[in-house]
């Protein structure tokens, strides 16, 4: 049996990625470059927020004391969110939306494929359900990487620019935090470090097919897993939390 605090921390490190990326995608509602991608982005947002709800409901149950999934989603401070920096990067243009999605989807699927064997039944169930959804997301983002990369000169340059910008945020995905260690020992969590090789291989395959290249990076950005975020996170959270902060306990 794992220490409860650590288990909660571990769940945040997975769930917060889905929340923040889901929030980013839902901001595109009505702003997608065309109707189909608009619908796709909001559909993926829905899947991610659905997964987030399952994780947070579980956390709320672990915490007890009448905590709800909404408290967890809306009422934490910035440093209490443990998502990776990658998912909080802004949707500068459509290339960034697709680049961010692709770089996260590949990791997300690898993670869930392992997490489905977790000894924690709830996490295993959420992962099993999520795999079906995330494989579809990955198919969507991979298709777009190829379409943009192998498209016109403008689309190629724009998606390459996004990949160059986002790639330095990927290394953090594989960092193992103190809470993760206990989760791994108890066979509840996944050792993210072991996913790196498959990740780089899977990303490279699509990137090459898309006639793109991965940048040579010497410096990788990290911090989100410790709660140290980029400046974008503050703006994102103020949008996300505004209603609950302004009208505490409001309900739809």
């Amino acid at each position: 049996m794992m220490n409860k605090e650590n288990l909660i921390e571990y769940i945040y490190s997975i769930a917060d990625n889905s929340l923040i990326l889901g929030q980013q995608l839902s901001e595109l509602c009505g702003h997608g470059p065309n109707l189909e991608t608009d619908i796709a982005c909001t559909n993926m947002a829905l899947d991610l927020l659905g997964q987030t709800r399952s994780y947070y409901q579980y956390v709320a149950q672990l915490v007890g004391a009448n905590k709800t999934e909404d408290d967890i989603a809306y009422l934490r401070t910035e440093r209490q969110y443990k998502n990776v920096l990658l998912v909080e990067q802004p949707s500068t243009h459509f290339g960034y939306v697709i680049g961010r999605q692709f770089l996260f989807d590949v990791f997300h699927l690898l993670l869930l494929e392992k997490l489905q064997f977790s000894k924690d039944e709830t996490l295993a169930a959420i992962a099993k359900k999520g795999i079906k959804e995330v494989s579809y997301h990955k198919r969507f983002s991979s298709d777009w990487i190829k379409r943009l990369g192998d498209g016109t000169k403008v689309s190629h340059d724009k998606i390459q620019e996004a990949i160059n910008h986002l790639w330095p945020y990927t290394e953090e995905l594989f960092d193992v935090m103190p809470a993760d260690k206990e989760a791994i020992e108890c066979q509840i969590g996944v050792d993210a470090a072991t996913l790196k090789e498959s990740y780089v291989a899977a990303v490279s395959e699509i990137i090459t097919e898309a006639t793109l290249t991965l940048p040579e990076t010497k410096w990788y950005q990290r911090g989100g897993k410790k709660g140290i975020h980029t400046e974008h996170m503050g703006y994102l959270l103020s949008d996300l939390q505004y209603m609950q902060r302004t009208y505490p306990n409001m309900k739809w």
């Binding site: 109707l35 189909e36 619908i39 796709a40 559909n43 993926m44 829905l46 899947d47 959804e133 579809y136 198919r139 969507f140 298709d143």
Partner: peptide
Amino acid sequence: ISQFGSTACKAL
């Protein structure tokens, strides 16, 4: 037409 449709469970 689109991998995603009017709801999560459908394609167009």
